[in-house]
Design a protein around this nucleic acid. Structure first.
Length: 451
RNA sequence: GGGUCGCUAGCUCAGCGGUAGAGCAUUCGGCUUUUAACCGAUUGGUCCUGAGUUCGAAUCUCAGGCGACCCA
């Protein structure tokens, strides 16, 4: 038989040697016996000293041989021939401790992957999750269509974009912060089920839950509303969990999480009321009541709706450990969601929380171009007043709505956070192969320090 | 943005005012059933950077860099 792989450990004892050879499927021991190896190479009496002295841990080698069980019972390949496939010029990390330095793990992920089976498993699971999700959507006639990453105006979310520039057109461009507005244009164009799973970019801070580029899937389904999207969300995520973990009852950082549908549904109003006893009727009343409970009352929260969200974020969000759909957000915070069919001041929107983290966001989409214009103009007004994350008016998008969009349910899921959940990873950097880090080394002397 | 902690050999770490250290890895020698092999020897350093205190700084102080965690 023939095997190839990376040499991980070497134990040479006189006329007998044991190597551990690893390929993607795992390790196998090589049994190298001087007498038998020389018998197979009558014209090369140095063959044993060559294999034991020319190889290092880290080298890629290929061997021929026969299967054998050693006296200690380990399945091994008794080597009859070998060849160097690729020489490693750098030593491997400590074979026992591995790479303990987390910074090095992220900066030199290739080393982390070589020595940490757990890291390899995380990225296998990530790939499995993504492929399972695509297959599930494809099986249900959702069409994946790629929309532009480079945009004149970033829209579809409250976030700051990265700025770039097209040379030939001398055109300032931004990287997308969401795929929403283009996918909706496709629904206007007649595609009733569309999605895009891909990278989006937000120019904001880095933390254990934020990387400036991350992966989302946005899904749009005509003739559906946010209730339909809840069923879709719990079914899709439970399917992915089953595929990746083999069960829908998992553990995250020591806490049992049950992803078996159906999941809890509760309105934001109910949850805040339950947690604080507060009812929100007017802004002034709510502010006073919140202050009395030692909740922060930011000035930017200039309406009863924004205060409700504040109270939710301060008192409820992190307590939503089991999967929970939070329903019916204030209209002020949701410029792209359809107004609620029966509750004034609210929109038909939900966010999904798992282990206290926002994992998905969905609406009955706003399809009324008049209302949409009014809401985007209100956003633009906030932007002028100094909120850099407020949205802008995308005239072409409004034009598309004027052409006519069918009633549609839309959903966005953060893939990285879902992978964290399903791989029991505490940091988003553990599920992104090459997370953004500051460059190493000293800043250049003389570079102008603006700001 | 604030706080705490970390940065010493390729890797994992000790040293915490008085000659820069260990284990593994490297290199050399020995060894035919090892599996963190073992035994003997060898090699390897901008102690993150800079300034200060001191007779003397990896060690104390200040500033900076990079990272981790927590908080906002």
């Amino acid at each position: 038989m023939a095997v190839a792989g990376r040499l991980m450990t070497r134990r040479v004892m006189g006329k007998l040697a044991f190597f551990t050879l690893a390929d993607e499927t795992g390790p196998i021991q090589l049994y190298i016996d001087k007498a038998s190896l020389e018998a197979a190479h009558p014209h090369n009496p140095d063959v044993f000293s060559q294999i034991t002295s020319l190889t290092d841990a880290g080298d890629w080698i290929g061997v021929h041989g026969t299967l054998k069980r050693t006296d200690r019972g380990e399945l091994s390949v008794k080597v009859s021939d070998w060849r160097m496939l690729s020489k490693s010029l750098q030593p491997l990390p400590d074979k026992w401790h591995g790479l303990a330095d987390v910074e090095k793990r992220y900066r030199q992920r290739y080393l982390d992957l070589i020595v940490s089976p757990h890291t390899r498993e995380t990225f296998r699971r990530r790939a499995l999750l993504v492929s399972t999700m695509r297959r599930w959507l494809d099986d249900r006639e959702f069409l994946e269509i790629e929309t532009p990453v480079l945009q004149s105006e970033a829209g579809g979310a409250d976030a700051r974009p990265f700025a770039t520039h097209h040379n030939a057109l001398d055109l300032p461009l931004t990287l997308r912060i969401a795929t929403e507005l283009h996918l909706k244009r496709l629904v206007v164009g007649g595609f009733e089920r569309v999605y895009e799973l891909g990278r989006i970019f937000r120019n904001e801070g880095i933390s254990t839950r934020h990387n400036p580029e991350f992966t989302s899937v946005e899904i749009y389904q005509a003739y559906a509303d946010y209730h339909d999207m809840m069923v879709l969300t719990e079914t899709l995520i439970a399917t992915c969990c089953q595929a990746v973990c083999g069960t829908t009852e998992i553990e995250y950082q020591g806490t049992a999480i049950d992803l078996t549908p159906p999941w809890t549904r509760a309105t934001m109003h109910e949850l805040v009321q339950r947690a604080t006893g507060l009812d929100f009727t007017t802004r002034a009343e709510a502010a006073a009541a919140m202050a009395a409970q030692e909740l922060l009352v930011p000035e930017a929260a200039d309406s009863v709706g924004r205060l409700l969200v504040e109270a939710f974020e301060q008192r409820v969000e992190t307590s939503l450990i089991q999967p929970t759909f939070v329903l019916d957000y204030p209209v002020e915070n949701s410029p792209l969601a359809r107004t609620h069919r029966s509750k004034p001041g609210l929109v038909e929107r939900f966010e999904l929380f798992i282990v206290g983290r926002e994992t998905a966001n969905a609406f009955s989409e706003l399809i009324d171009p008049v209302d949409q214009r009014r809401r985007l103009e209100a956003q633009q007004e906030r932007r002028r007043a100094g909120d850099p994350e407020a949205q802008t008016v995308d005239e072409d998008f409004l034009h598309a709505l004027e052409v006519g969009m069918p009633p549609t349910g839309g959903l966005g899921i953060g893939i990285d956070r879902l992978v964290m959940l399903l791989t029991d990873s505490p940091s988003i950097r553990d599920v992104i192969a090459f997370p953004l880090l500051r460059p190493e080394g000293r800043p250049e002397v003389g570079s102008d320090a603006m700001g």
